[in-house]
Computed example of a mutant assay.
Amino acid sequence: MTAERARGGLWAVVPAAGHGARFGGDVPKQYLDVAGAPLLAHTLRALLAHPAVEGAVVVLAADDAHWPGWHECAGKPLLTCVGGATRADSVLAGLAALPESVRADDFVLVHDAARPNLALADLERLLERGRNDPVGAILATPVRDTLKRAGDDGGIDATPSRERLWRALTPQLFRRLQLTRALEAAQRDGVAVTDESMAMERQGHRPLLVEGSADNLKVTTPSDLAYFAYLRSA
């Protein structure tokens, strides 16, 4: 029995209820074709490739007419539920829809539907470090570009230091109940969290940063989609 199996498997929540307004077009970006499969299929295959990941809950929009009706991927179960107007709403719905076998103190992964280029080695590293931490961890990459702060007129106001700055990626790994409470607290306070770590940080937690590949891209624009297609064909 492997160490991962001995510790038990884990489930993932994949929020896919967004319509991709920044991307444009009639078809949500997660359903656009790349190499003969929807972008979402590539994301799920990458996530479920790890032997410790037992299944996933895909969170859909109420009016989603594009969901293919999948019940499994990579030989593992897929469940679905309806999300809400915000990312936090959708992740909370996904957490509530997890199987009863996922206990309150079990770790759960949350992964963007539009991040199809997750490396198996990165996921392994996240699980190895995050599951040995009382809070959890996120994949991230250090900021290497020079940053500029823009003024209202479009001019540059400042060049802030990039020292100790990281770009947050997904998956992010937290315990089911802790994450649920953190997201609910943000909702009560009227705070729109942009990722799960932000919700946890607001509760005084300090998740670990686990360095991941810079090409774990989030498809936001048509050029991102073209880049992923290139990576697939390379």
Rank of each mutant, 00 (worst) to 15 (best):
Y230V: 03
L209R: 15
L231F: 07
L123G: 03
L44Y: 12
L165K: 10
V53H: 10
A62P: 05
A85D: 14
A85T: 10
T86A: 11
Q187I: 03
V13N: 07
S213A: 15
A6M: 05
A93L: 05
L183T: 06
L177F: 04
A113P: 04
A113D: 15
D112S: 12
D106L: 10
D195L: 08
H66V: 00
S101L: 13
A35F: 00
G24K: 04
K76R: 15
A158P: 03
A182N: 09
R188A: 15
D224N: 14
A21I: 05
V53S: 06
K76P: 02
G55M: 13
C81F: 08
L225R: 14
L173S: 03
A104L: 09
Y31K: 09
F174Q: 02
T180E: 14
L231T: 06
G20D: 09
L79D: 03
R7Y: 00
L173C: 02
P171M: 11
G55R: 14
Q203R: 15
D106N: 09
F228L: 06
D122E: 12
A192E: 14
L60D: 05
A199Q: 07
A185V: 04
A158T: 06
V219D: 09
A37I: 06
V91I: 15
V110E: 08
Y230P: 00
N216P: 01
R7M: 11
A3N: 07
L225W: 12
K29D: 01
S223M: 08
D26H: 11
V191N: 00
R206Y: 08
G18M: 00
L169Q: 15
P207M: 00
E128G: 02
L92M: 05
A104Y: 03
G83A: 05
T220L: 10
